[in-house]
Design a binder for these strands. Sequence first.
DNA 1: GATGAATGAGACTTCATTCAT
DNA 2: CATGAATGAAGTCTCATTCAT
Lengths: 205, 205, 205, 205
Amino acid sequence: MQEQERAQARHEKILDAALSVFGRKGYSATGVDDIAAESATSKGGVYFHFPGKQAIFLAVLDRAARMLRAKADEAIASETDPIAKADAALLAVLSTFARHRTLASLFLVESLGAGREFHQRIVQLHDEFTNLIKLHLDEAVASGAIDPVDTEVAARAWFGALNEVITSWLLSGRPKRLEDAYAPLRPLLMRSVGARERQSTVRPG
Amino acid sequence: MQEQERAQARHEKILDAALSVFGRKGYSATGVDDIAAESATSKGGVYFHFPGKQAIFLAVLDRAARMLRAKADEAIASETDPIAKADAALLAVLSTFARHRTLASLFLVESLGAGREFHQRIVQLHDEFTNLIKLHLDEAVASGAIDPVDTEVAARAWFGALNEVITSWLLSGRPKRLEDAYAPLRPLLMRSVGARERQSTVRPG
Amino acid sequence: MQEQERAQARHEKILDAALSVFGRKGYSATGVDDIAAESATSKGGVYFHFPGKQAIFLAVLDRAARMLRAKADEAIASETDPIAKADAALLAVLSTFARHRTLASLFLVESLGAGREFHQRIVQLHDEFTNLIKLHLDEAVASGAIDPVDTEVAARAWFGALNEVITSWLLSGRPKRLEDAYAPLRPLLMRSVGARERQSTVRPG
Amino acid sequence: MQEQERAQARHEKILDAALSVFGRKGYSATGVDDIAAESATSKGGVYFHFPGKQAIFLAVLDRAARMLRAKADEAIASETDPIAKADAALLAVLSTFARHRTLASLFLVESLGAGREFHQRIVQLHDEFTNLIKLHLDEAVASGAIDPVDTEVAARAWFGALNEVITSWLLSGRPKRLEDAYAPLRPLLMRSVGARERQSTVRPG
DNA sequence: GATGAATGAGACTTCATTCAT
DNA sequence: CATGAATGAAGTCTCATTCAT
């Protein structure tokens, strides 16, 4: 089984390298050669593990999405109030992206330009996250914590607002610390769904 | 002046073609040949008028941005209330994109994937539009129509929410009619800045 | 000896697989992977038994040639008249190829395109078969059954005529049944060497 | 129009180079790079004129076929007797191949190994030439010059015999001079269709 | 000004072969 | 003996850009 382990390790190594290079140079400017070099493999080795460049990108995207999702779930689990859960999810995303700029670039920038082939997957990722938020907003509505708003749209709007803030940070470098962007954004989001203004118990993390 | 006019006409024709092809195939999948063919010119002709593919894309983007800005300004001019002005600007963007899907694709999708070279310009465009909204939000705050929120962030959040809705429409086709997305979004945005709920006087157009 | 037997069995299995794949996909389109898969072995296994792809093809060719030769010898043995022997040899080849289309493809098509490395072997195979025919034509000349023709050329011409018929069948599918091609061909060949026209006693087999 | 001429010249130059390299190295061993180098062009230049390697090979084959056909037609035109016409056609092919070994290699060897994609064209070429011979054999039958044989098969057999002789010369180098192979072959072919033995008036040419 | 042939760097991918396990 | 991961050279093809006409 040691062989399988080594292969798996190589698989991951390639994914790591790909994440790094895609994040650094962008999808189209990244060559399979670059990935091979960064992962200390040969080009053929890369193609042994993945059928092509697109597949690598997709795999990177998926792995990152799983990671991000785990962070969000974890953050959600540590809260009880529905609104706080949604809030925590947003903050988890923002914090994770703040720590892994590459990931943010991949999700919010590169994946779009990578070509039409990825659009479906992007939609899927956005939907998944939007639904996560919607779920808790629905609960909040049910519990009377917020007004009976269109949670679908609200979730999308929240996600969009977050994305814009992160994208702006990515492309322009403002604000210096991405985490600083959430404090002023939060009350806006809360008010948008009629949530009673409270002090957030969630800390950036 | 006839010479110059002909040159100008050709210039525009190439830009039209480029907008069409970029919107249809995406930035990287578009070849200069495609643009030449669509504009009934030769490749050399395209290179006479533009220094390269990037420059064409930038020119298309700029022209489109001017057009979009004009639409927004026009919409703003027809309103008097600051909030209504900001509201109208958003709706103008959405309506324009709804009518020119290609434009939306260019602004929100292709420009990102086109490469790092365009990031600066994207930031510029986002900033320009965000500032437009911020301006009127500031007025609204000054006039006491809305709470003294961080208008910078609010404007960005509004823009982000709008973008997400449009992007989603672009990539997934939902909702069928993009205009239908604004009705449920509007109250959220209004509430986010503490605007007194009113019936919008602005009609999609 | 069991070890050796198993090895031998594997050897044959690979050869069978190779024959099948080469015949199906052609030499260059066949990958060593294909052969490994078809023979239920691993690539390494194949390379244990054979030094390389060329060697496999050569081995397949040789084994097939031996088989074909055996069929021809058998057919020859069942005849007494020299002309009938040559005649029988041709028919045996044709019949065998009719039943094993793959073999025909290998011999008459793939072996040529496989590369210069195989040319010598092809010549050898053609010579071997031509000589077989020549031998009996020589006897026929000696016995006065046919005119004192240049048997070397006659043998080659016979072989060539047969090849063309078979190749045509391979590439175009005409005639439907390859065996049907021999009946009209036979009298031509016979007349070409001045053989007294007789009813063939040989039956396609 | 000078530009068109230059382009046409380049087109031909590439075809010349391709013929040379394909003939020298074989289809699969030939790289587009080789053709580019031999034609003193760039790789891109080759791809400007031809869509791909296969297309180049096909074009070479077609051009060569036209040339060969012209030679045959010319030879046929200079004879009056039907049998002599068919005879002349064969000899023309043989002579042309003798002078252009590369052509022979292309037609009889490389075209087969080039892959399934070419099979149809090969059949077409074989059929074209076979029909040419059949035409004149039919006339010979009609005029009573030869027996009422199956001219279709006879033509194919003649062609096959010729091919084998040429192929053998190509692969083994025997006989030294290909033209020497026709003298002993001719009477065989004639006898095969029951043609009254005569002295050929056709000279190798 | 316009044309389109030509360039050439570089992209992705394949695959025969090797070799550590 | 067998496995299959890994190698790397080589292949086909694309395309932004240049430039002679």
